[in-house]
Every structure is written in structure tokens, then in C-alpha cells.
Design a protein around this nucleic acid. Structure first.
Lengths: 144, 144
DNA sequence: TATTGTTATACTCTATAACTATA
DNA sequence: TATAGTTATAGAGTATAACAATA
């Protein structure tokens, strides 16, 4: 079972990477966008720590998304060492596309299962994830 | 759901890598051992193609396992370009240890689930794997 | 002196493709 | 000329750690 989970997980990751590449995004960039969208205004360090990525790598990720106009660094007035991360209006539009790609990916991966099967599978997977101490929304692969 | 599968799969892969490192093996080496054990005597190219690894990388993997005395290259008498891959007696013992590590890993990953839950989960996952065209026993991550 | 963010360096890993031997 | 296996080179990606600015 553990092997089957690893196998399907790696496959799902690969297929998502292919799909998201159509938006000229890497999976790590999509994860960063999602993290900023879900809680705007946090510092780079706070988001990097949540995702488990090294600061130096995180800076490069933000650089790419900032140059592309999707993410904005705002200086914190009271502590000028910090940047607050926000999505731009363009970034919000991009996130909508990311959501659509995610939906298509979801339909693809689950297409062998009925709605009832999906609910059962989700419940079982959620129990495994909880017991293993996984953080919701954080993919361990971001660490690499 | 697709994200949950990717998340759990990456976690399971990481945990297995940690466990198998106690035997001084990488996941890719363990996969190679397993492939050779399941069908001994195949050529390097045949096994490399099944696992989806590049020939140059495959040679390095075999080198490591051969130097360690777990795997043996036997010249094919009728076509001296080919090597037939076999486990040594020591390699068989190592495979037994790999099996025990795999069992401990399996118990860990599934520990949130009852036997009935595990059977249900396995059946659902197998349907997803079949529909997605995954090859039994071949982890897509070996390609990287 | 400690902390946030940045940059530079070195290292690891891998794919590409050139090479050897056998057919 | 084609194929199995090997080796060498170059490129991508990453972590480590030094650095600059601010507290």
C-alpha cells in the first residue's frame, strides 16, 4: 500500500507539473502563490518556513513571480527589514487559472471513481495524513 | 484529492528513504534490487527500460551494488555485448532486510487504518493506478 | 548583537552525447 | 551498420554560508 501511495503520488505530481507548465509556472511557484493568496501580508521568512523551503531558494521564487507581476513585496513601515507578500490584481487572475488547472487535474486523477468512492477515498486519505502529521496544503516536495 | 495523494505519496517516499538508508541503500538501489530479484537474468537495458532510468545512470547504480557484492553481472555466452543481472547470495540476504524495512514502513503508513479500511483503500487506489496506466512495481520517481 | 533578506560559491545530480566492444 | 554498455562533459538545480541592511 505504501508503495502504491508513493507511486500514485509521484504520478499525480508529474501530471500536475505538466498541466501547470501551460501557465508557465512550476509546482513550487504555484504553491507559493497559493500560500500568499490564503494569507496575504506575511513576511518572506514566515511563508518560507511554512512551506519548508530554504530562504535562498525562496528569494529566487519570489523574484520570478515579482518580475512577472503576480506578486508584490511591500516594505513594512515599522520594521524595515521585513517585506509583506501580496498578490497583485494580475496575480489574482493567475490564481483563478491555477484553480481551473487544479480542477481539471482533479477530474483526471479521480476519473476511475464514482462520487461515493471519492468521498470514501478522501476520508481514508485524510485519516492517514492526520496520523502522519502532515500540514494541510503543504507538499513535502517543496523542501527539495 | 489529487493534492492529498501527492502530499501523502511524497511523505511516504521520504519516510521510506530514511528507513532504507539504515541499510545504506537509496530508494533507487532498492528498486533495482527488487526488479532483479523478481526476474533474474535480464539485460541491463531491459531492466533500465522497465524502470525508466537512463542507461548512464543505470550503470552507476549497478556499479554500486556490484562493488558491494549484492548484484552480479554475468556475460551472455551467445551475445557477449549483454550482461545478465543476478542477485548474489549476499544480495538475497539484503533483499530479505529490504523486505523487513518495507513491512515496517507499511505498518507505519497504514497505522491509522483498520484491516477493513486498508482493504478498501487498496482497492480504490488500485483502480486509480490502473486507470492512470501505472506499471505495477515501477515508481515514476526512478526516472529522475 | 540578532534578525531579515540577498548574493556568491561550491556541490550534487543528471542528461547528452561521445566512445568501446561486439554483432 | 547497429546495438549493449560505458565514460566524459556540461548543465541545472540546490544548499551552505558569507554579506548588507535594519533592529
Amino acid at each position: 500500500m505504501a508503495f502504491l501511495l508513493a507511486q500514485i503520488g509521484a504520478h499525480a505530481t508529474e501530471r500536475f507539473a505538466e498541466r501547470i507548465a501551460a501557465l508557465d509556472l512550476s509546482p513550487a511557484q504555484a504553491g507559493l502563490l497559493r500560500a500568499v493568496a490564503s494569507e496575504p501580508g506575511r513576511s518572506q521568512q514566515a511563508v518560507a518556513e511554512q512551506l519548508g523551503v530554504q530562504p535562498s531558494r525562496f528569494v529566487a521564487l519570489v523574484d520570478e513571480l515579482e518580475q512577472r507581476g503576480a506578486v508584490e513585496r511591500r516594505r513594512n513601515a515599522t520594521d524595515r527589514r521585513l517585506y509583506a507578500l501580496h498578490l497583485t490584481a494580475q496575480g489574482e487572475l493567475l490564481m483563478r487559472d491555477v484553480g481551473q488547472v487544479g480542477q481539471a487535474h482533479e477530474n483526471d486523477i479521480c476519473s476511475a471513481l464514482s462520487p461515493a468512492d471519492r468521498a470514501t477515498l478522501r476520508e481514508l486519505l485524510q485519516r492517514v495524513a492526520d496520523q502522519q502529521g502532515l500540514t494541510p496544503g503543504v507538499h513535502p516536495g517543496y523542501r527539495r
